[in-house]
């Protein structure tokens, strides 16, 4: 018997004594509602996604409590693990920093929406509350060999056609997504040699050896901070124009003073305290990016042509 089936069997035993389940429910349900409200009211999409993940995990636990261990696991693996990650990727792709304005632009939308939502809540809660529902039968009878076996039996038995159709839908969706996001390359890709030659021919000779890389500092090294030139002024060209356009760069001076302050008395503990900074709103931009290889990333950003990379990143 697989571990999953063991869990299911355990949960199945709890149906007799509902006290544990009620405790579980009253812990999980508020968390799920808080997660849902967080999704709706967080200004940043990233936060919303994380709140939603909370709700989904809560739901997964409730599924297990509801004698559906297989669905609970699928909920975690597929929804929270795959779909939510897909959302996060797209959020990163189209600008993680942008926070939504709270001003409603459609006149009367907010009031009408509140009214409609309130009406639906009252309606549905009243209906479900008033309904005289019997006590649950439990799935022990329907799944004598365990939940997973029973579900497999149904999917590949009675629902096999639906299963095949859904498989076709998935394939179609994948192809459709590729067709939607695919772009033809309109111009030939320039080789490294051509780029180098052009830099010598047209660019500033002092950049012939390569553009400056972004700043590297004792407590912070990232693509969003310009390097400091020998005279102390920041080198604007060391930061990717994509980040500049997005408004996601940070001031070099902030770190320049840091250098001065940290210079005489370096403390090893300071690095620990600044590690929490990524949770700040402006830092969220870097949270999805690898912090370990700043130099490599920076060169790539500055050396590569802005127009090629920019289209995707902006």
């Amino acid at each position: 018997m697989s571990p999953l089936a063991a869990v299911a069997a355990q949960v199945g035993e709890t149906t007799a004594s509902t006290a544990g389940e009620e405790v579980l429910f009253w812990i999980i349900a508020p968390l799920a509602v808080i997660g849902a409200l967080g999704l709706v009211f967080s200004r940043k999409a990233v936060h919303g996604a994380l709140f939603l993940a909370v709700t989904m995990i809560g739901l997964a636990i409730l599924y297990i409590a509801l004698e559906a261990p297989f669905l609970g696991v699928v909920q975690v693996v597929v929804y929270t693990g795959a779909i939510m990650m897909l959302f996060l990727f797209v959020i990163m792709l189209i600008g993680v920093d942008a926070s939504d304005s709270r001003v409603e632009t459609i006149r009367g939308q907010r009031g009408a929406a509140a009214l409609a939502v309130f009406g639906v809540i009252v309606l549905l809660v009243a209906v479900t509350g008033r309904a005289a529902l019997p006590d649950p039968v439990g799935t022990a009878q329907a799944a004598p060999e365990g939940n997973v076996y029973a579900i497999a039996d149904l999917i590949f038995g009675r629902y096999v056609w639906a299963f095949e159709t859904v498989a076709a839908v998935l394939i179609t969706a994948a192809v459709g997504a590729m067709a939607l996001t695919h772009r033809e390359r309109l111009a030939r890709r320039h080789s490294q040699r051509e780029q180098s030659e052009r830099r010598f021919r047209e660019g500033d000779p002092k950049d012939a050896a390569g553009m400056p890389v972004p700043g590297v500092y004792a407590r912070h090294n990232a693509v969003d901070t310009p390097a400091l030139l020998p005279d102390g002024t920041p080198a604007e060209s060391s930061v990717s124009p994509v980040l500049v356009a997005r408004g996601a760069t940070r001031l070099a001076e902030e770190f320049a003073t840091d250098v001065g302050r940290l210079g005489p008395e370096p403390k090893p503990g300071e690095a620990e305290s600044t590690a929490e900074r990524p949770t700040e709103p402006s830092d969220a931009a870097t949270s999805g990016l690898p912090d370990d290889s700043p130099a490599a990333h920076g060169t790539e950003e500055t050396d590569d042509e802005p127009e090629q990379d920019g289209g995707d990143a902006r």
Binding site: A36, V40, A45, I121
Partner: peptide
């Protein structure tokens, strides 16, 4: 029901397509 209507409210109130 609560989760459903909260989700509905999110659709109605949030302009961000992802949200």
């Amino acid at each position: 029901t609560l989760l459903f209507t909260i989700g509905g409210a999110g659709v109605l109130l949030r302009r961000n397509a992802l949200v």
